[in-house]
Design a protein around this nucleic acid. Structure first.
Lengths: 144, 144
DNA sequence: GCAGAAGTTGAAGCGAGCTTGAAGTCACGT
DNA sequence: ACGTGACTTCAAGCTCGCTTCAACTTCTGC
């Protein structure tokens, strides 16, 4: 069996069939149909699904994922250039997110024994509100 | 002005007042009230808010954040032990997420020129479906 | 060839995380 | 003391990402 039914795909990927159909409506996955109108998937779809799940797991929305995958040409085989372009965009995004996470982690470390996340005053924190000149919303922690 | 109104807090944090009130209902932030029933915030609340936003930005739910912050004793000043305990739990979570992101990024890199995220066969991918014996849903990419 | 499991569509429902609106109160400058 | 703008609560509404249901069809094994 070189092709998978939606049930098999679901079992193998751990994603509910309803979710897979939803992804199809959204355009994140595609399938061919049997003469009896049932979906059939090629095996690489598993990888695409796990990519989607992983991307979701780190906080990317379906729309972002959709757009990234839509960057692949549907008419022709993706060239190396297509992949490089796509990959570069993602790398930037992912590197940003990784940096944000590391900042969060490090802030947490530096907060031990300080209490700045509780309601008490933080001795380390920005006593004169020095970020104010950088505009509204300027906060050390937040990378956005 | 040592205390902030909800409007000032909103402007400084970049978070809508409606969201701040919502967080208060959920128990993520607290405020004291003026005689006229208006909210007043101490400056460290800014830090707490930015912490919440950063944590959200990397995919944590309000409930997870809520629980982490609830790990802080409300009655007494948090001790160093409280912080260490809280921090350790978060570190683990964050390290996991960072690892997941890095895996995603590296997979992407290894996919350049391969096409495994498109519908074409991936020459690098798991030709004999060797992960099948590890149970349903076993996929290299997905850390969960 | 028939039962039962698995598949199909479309519409409705759900929880999370807010936003919006209505109707009213408070705070502050002149 | 008054007007304007910021604040209050409560309820309803919205988007995202699915899940559930109903009514029906197709595929598989005996």
């Amino acid at each position: 069996m070189t092709e998978l039914t939606i049930g098999e795909l679901s079992e193998r990927s751990g994603i509910a069939t309803s979710a897979i159909r939803y992804y199809e409506v959204r355009g994140l996955v595609t399938s061919r149909r049997t003469p009896g109108n049932q979906r059939r998937y090629e095996r690489p779809m598993l990888r695409r699904l796990s990519f989607i799940r992983t991307a979701q797991g780190v906080g990317l929305s379906l729309e972002e994922i959709e757009q990234a995958l839509a960057g692949l040409p549907s008419g022709r085989t993706p060239t190396k250039a297509d992949w490089t372009r796509l990959s570069r965009g993602w790398r930037t995004r992912l590197d940003e997110r990784i940096a944000r996470l590391e900042r969060l982690r490090d802030t947490l470390d530096s907060c031990i024994g300080c209490g700045c996340l509780s309601l008490r005053r933080c001795t380390l924190s920005n006593p004169g509100d020095v970020l104010a000149p950088r505009g509204p919303g300027a906060v050390i922690l937040d990378g956005r």
